[in-house]
Each structure stands twice: as C-alpha cells, then as structure tokens.
C-alpha cells in the first residue's frame, strides 16, 4: 500500500515534468519566459556546487526552526493557560481573533520600524504566522478530550501534572500535529516573503533572497532552481518527518487511520 503511494507520486512527478518539457519543445513561449528543464537543472546544480544555495538554505532552515520552536513553547503555554483559566481563555481567544487573520506581510511596514530590517524582523514575522494557528489547534485539541479520560485519570489518583503529561498530551496529539504541519507550511511562506522584501539580513541571506537576487539579475532558470529547492524541502519534511511522527504515535495508538 505504501509502495503504491510512492509509485503514484513518482508517476505524477514524471508526468508533470514531461508536460513542462513538451510545452518548452512546442516553442510557444520564449525560453526567457519558459526555460527548459536542462537549463533549470544546470542552474540548480551550479548554485549548489558553488555553495551559495546550500548556505542560504541552511540559514533559512535555521531561522525557521528557531521560529517554530519559540512559537511552539508560546503556543503550549497559552493553550494551557486558556484551558485552566477562564480569564486567560477569553484574553487569548480575543488575541487569536485579532491577530490570526492578519497576514504577516501587512505588518511589514511596522516591523521595519520596530525591529529594523534584521534577523529579529524575520523571526517576528515567522512567529506571528505560526503562533496563532498553533494556539487555535491546541485549544481545540484540549477541549476535544472527553471528560471521561480525565476522570479515569483522577480515579487512578494521578495529580494535575500527571494528567497533563499522561492523558492530555497524547489525547490532543493529533491536533497538535496538525497545528505543527500548518505552522511549518506557514513559516516557510512567511520566511520566503519576508526575505524577498527585506533582502539579506546577514551577509548570506536565505532562500527568499536567493530567488530575489536571481530575479533582479534576470536569471529565470535560477528562480526556478530556488523554487524547486523549496518544493523538495516541503516534500521531504512532509513525507519523512511528519509521516514518521504520525506512524509512530497517533497511528500506532489507533487515533488516526
């Protein structure tokens, strides 16, 4: 079953790549607008080979993990506070209602003034785009735990901390994982758009800056190379990391088929 899924994915990938190449061969579009696969792959290989892209990729991943980690801690804290206190719940719900629909890009002009165009600015935008959906998911996760689980725990004589770790955490894990997935996707988007707006925040810059640089030097194959890297990272994280975590936890526990 699993192999089959992998085969299908490969089939579709090859299919899309073929269509791309056929469109290129048809000559309908100038190669400036629609470069061939070989030039794109050459651009990708060139940038990887001279180390430029690798460094920028590492920088992007580093700043994303940092943002995700900070948001995660904040989100868990906020969701717990909301779960145990009515006042905190109403405050946090209001905050989520205010901030969740606000795109990070809309905050850019303010962020520039508050944090300058440095690393903190990008980190702020990432945290803003990740935190709120994560809080929302954790809140739903906690409130969807049937009371009976908690009561059983109390019957066993568990204290609050034990109930939290042994019952609430695993019981809300599916929601937590969904929150994490959304957070990951949104942090990618936030990072790329922030970098394209701010430029290089340190001397190397990240993937967004890579794409922007290729754009201003009119190097379309290079732009595609950057996009392909983003796609590959996205697929790898989804297929390898998230699927593995799911298989080992919620699926093994029978919480999700």
């Amino acid at each position: 079953m699993k192999n089959n899924k992998l085969l299908q994915r490969i089939f579709w990938l090859i299919f899309l790549v073929l269509i791309w190449q056929i469109v290129f061969w048809s000559g309908r579009f100038s190669p400036l607008v629609f470069p061939s696969l070989t030039t794109i792959i050459k651009a990708l290989a060139g940038s990887l080979y001279n180390g430029e892209l690798t460094q920028q990729l590492l920088f992007s991943l580093l700043i994303i993990s940092q943002g995700l980690l900070i948001s995660l801690v904040l989100a868990i804290f906020m969701a717990l506070a909301a779960h145990f206190s009515g006042i905190a719940a109403s405050l946090i719900d209001t905050l989520v209602a205010l901030a969740h629909p606000l795109p990070g890009i809309a905050l850019m002009p303010l962020v520039l003034i508050w944090f300058g165009a440095g690393r903190q600015a990008i980190l702020f935008v990432i945290i803003h785009s990740v935190l709120w959906p994560m809080v929302l998911n954790l809140r739903t996760g906690f409130s969807s735990i049937p009371d009976i689980y908690i009561l059983v725990g109390k019957n066993y004589g568990l204290d609050r901390l034990q109930i939290l770790i042994q019952i609430m955490a695993p019981a809300s894990l599916p929601y937590f994982l969904v929150g994490l997935k959304i957070g990951w996707a949104r942090s990618w988007r936030a990072l790329i758009s922030a970098e394209m707006l701010f430029g290089a925040v340190n001397s190397i810059g990240g993937l967004g800056w890579f794409i922007f640089q290729k754009r201003v030097f009119f190097d379309l194959p290079g732009v595609f190379a950057g996009i392909i890297v983003i796609i590959i990272i996205g697929i790898l994280v989804e297929d390898l990391i998230f699927n593995n975590i799911e298989n080992r936890t919620v699926k093994r526990w029978g919480m999700k088929s």
């Binding site: 003034i113 300058g116 701010f198 430029g199 290089a200 001397s203 922007f212």
Partner: peptide, 15 residues
C-alpha cells in the same frame, strides 16, 4: 555586496 539591503528609495530614506 554582502552588506546590501534591498529597499525602495522611500523606505531606504526612512530607514
């Protein structure tokens, strides 16, 4: 080249 920040002129002036 490693010290450049991309900004439109008005943003650059404000910065």
């Amino acid at each position: 080249d490693n010290q450049l920040v991309t900004m439109a002129h008005p943003d650059g002036m404000n910065a």
